[in-house]
Every structure is written in structure tokens, then in C-alpha cells.
């Protein structure tokens, strides 16, 4: 909004913007600015009345009423809107179940404890082993009926289930990888080696999602997590403490697994739209209804 009118009571909306607003022709984001400004500025509401014809004015008031009812964007949503994320996408992201303070707090606590263990044991292994599992857990919990109370409504909505899954996955990955990255900064003594969790994290998340298409949102991530822990234990036992996943070749294999799993996931995308993915747990849930 160009605040180029001033009458001693503060800055006001541009008169051309108000005329366009009255005609219903003002476009976002300027529309939102004028909407917000009109809520608090009686002078501009008066100006709007002068430049409007009655039917257009009624439509404007209706639009303003709707704006007053609309949920106020919080800090994160406001940030997303400012960097150009569409308002409907931002609201979908904000409804992601695991992007709550409780989940992010739990992740922070786990990371803090693991970083502390690195200092006491003088080895980054526990941190490197655990950090890739946190994004996987977050993504797994953001899909399916376990944590999403509106899962049933989301399944039957025309918005493609895979698109919703990817929207939430990206949101959870950004949050989880960001927290992991912060934890990595607390381990400056290990240099780039402390970042060796990143590629395995992407590989585990992509594999977990690809298997979810067949095994369901509970069994698939559980199997992937168990497989990861088993792999680390086996390689530690057979290579005398040298964890293969965090070596150069190990990182290469993890990258290949991530790409392969992403391709499989894309091929199976319609499975996230057709129905709840079967698993022993969803089977139980289905049995409990008439």
C-alpha cells in the first residue's frame, strides 16, 4: 500500500487503491493491506464511502466482514506469506500436526541430550545415528490418522493426497533439518563429519514414504527405523567401530537410496489418494467401525 495521504491523524490508503478496492479490482497483496488498514482507519472508511457506488460499497463491506472473520496469520504464517507462499498453502502447512511447539520441543530436547552425549563420550556416533531418524519420525507422524484428526476429511477431499503429503513433508523436513543443523553447529570440533547425518536422513525419509504406500503409515517408518539401527549395529560390529554409513562410500550409497526411493514414491503417488494405506493398525481401525 502506498501511504501517500496524510491529514495529521496518520498515513492513509492511496485514493486510487480505495477506488480499485471499491470496484473489487484491487489485487493481493495490496488488497490485504487495504483490508487490514480499513479495519482500524475511520478516515479511509469514509473516503471509501465517498468513492464507491452503493452496490460496490456493499460488496466491499462484505469483503471486509469476511476479512475480519478470517484467521489472523501468526508469526510463521506471516513469514511464509511475506516470502511469497500462497495463503492457502501456508494454511495447509500450519495445519501439519507435528509442526506444533510440543513436537518441536521434544525434538530439541532429544537433540540437546544427544549433543551432550557427544561431549561426554567424545564421539559423534550417537548424534549421527539419531539425527536421521527425527525427520523420518516427523514425516511419518504428519500423515495418517494417528496424529491428524482431520485425516478422514483430507482423504475424501479433491485435493490430491500426494500433494498434501508432499506439502507437509517439505514443511517437516525444513523444520527437522533446520533443528538438526542447529545441533550440528554445537559440534564445531568435528567439522563436516558432523553433517554426515544429512544424506542418510533424506534416504530414510524417502524410503519410509515409499514403503508407506505399501505398508501403511505406522509399519513402514517403524521398519525403516529398525533397519537403520540394525545396519549401524552390524557395521559397527564388523568394522570395529567404523560406521560405514558415515564414510564417503556410505554417503554415496545413501544418496543413491534416496534418489531410488524418491523415484519409487513418485511412481506410487496415486496410492496416497485412493484410500488409507493398509497396515495392521489401519486394518484394526477399519474393523472397529460398523
Amino acid at each position: 500500500m502506498r501511504d501517500d495521504r496524510h491529514d495529521g491523524t496518520g498515513w492513509h490508503a492511496d485514493i486510487d487503491d480505495l477506488r480499485a478496492y471499491a470496484r473489487g479490482e484491487l489485487r493481493a497483496p495490496r488488497l490485504w493491506s487495504v483490508d487490514t488498514h480499513l479495519v482500524t482507519c475511520a478516515t479511509c472508511r469514509g473516503t471509501l464511502a465517498e468513492v464507491s457506488d452503493p452496490p460496490a460499497l456493499d460488496a466491499g463491506w462484505e469483503r471486509l466482514d469476511a476479512e475480519l472473520d478470517a484467521p489472523r496469520p501468526g508469526f510463521v504464517e506471516g513469514l511464509l506469506l511475506r516470502i511469497g507462499v500462497a495463503d492457502h498453502t501456508a494454511r495447509l502447512l500450519l495445519a501439519t500436526p507435528v509442526l506444533r511447539a510440543s513436537w518441536l520441543g521434544a525434538v530439541l530436547l532429544v537433540l540437546a541430550m544427544t549433543v551432550a552425549s557427544v561431549y561426554t563420550s567424545d564421539s559423534p556416533v550417537l548424534f549421527l545415528a539419531l539425527a536421521p531418524l527425527l525427520p523420518l519420525a516427523g514425516v511419518a507422524l504428519s500423515y495418517g490418522p494417528a496424529l491428524d484428526p482431520t485425516h478422514e476429511l483430507a482423504i475424501v477431499a479433491p485435493l490430491h493426497g500426494f500433494r498434501l503429503l508432499m506439502t507437509r513433508t517439505i514443511a517437516v523436513l525444513v523444520a527437522s533439518l533446520g533443528l538438526n543443523g542447529l545441533a550440528t553447529l554445537a559440534l564445531p570440533g568435528y567439522g563436516l563429519r558432523a553433517l554426515a547425518w544429512l544424506v542418510p536422513a533424506l534416504a530414510l525419509t524417502a524410503t519410509g514414504l515409499a514403503l508407506t504406500a505399501r505398508l501403511g503409515p505406522v509399519l513402514a517408518p517403524a521398519l525403516v527405523s529398525g533397519g537403520w539401527v540394525a545396519l549401524l549395529m552390524v557395521t559397527e560390529a564388523t568394522t570395529h567401530g567404523m560406521l560405514a554409513a558415515f564414510t564417503g562410500p556410505g554417503q554415496g550409497v545413501a544418496a543413491a537410496v534416496a534418489v531410488l526411493a524418491a523415484c519409487v514414491l513418485h511412481r506410487m503417488r496415486d496410492r496416497f489418494d485412493a484410500s488409507p494405506v493398509p497396515s495392521p493398525f489401519t486394518h484394526f481401525a477399519r474393523r472397529s467401525t460398523s
Binding site: 469476511a66 476479512e67 472473520d69 500462497a86 495463503d87 492457502h88
Partner: peptide, 15 residues
């Protein structure tokens, strides 16, 4: 939120 799931992406029309 449900309206967004139902593909009403235009903010004004959705509200």
C-alpha cells in the same frame, strides 16, 4: 481449512 482441501484457493471467494 476444509475449503482449502476442497480446492477453493482464491482467498476472497473462499472466505
Amino acid at each position: 481449512y476444509v475449503a482449502i482441501l476442497k480446492e477453493l484457493t482464491d482467498r476472497g471467494a473462499r472466505h
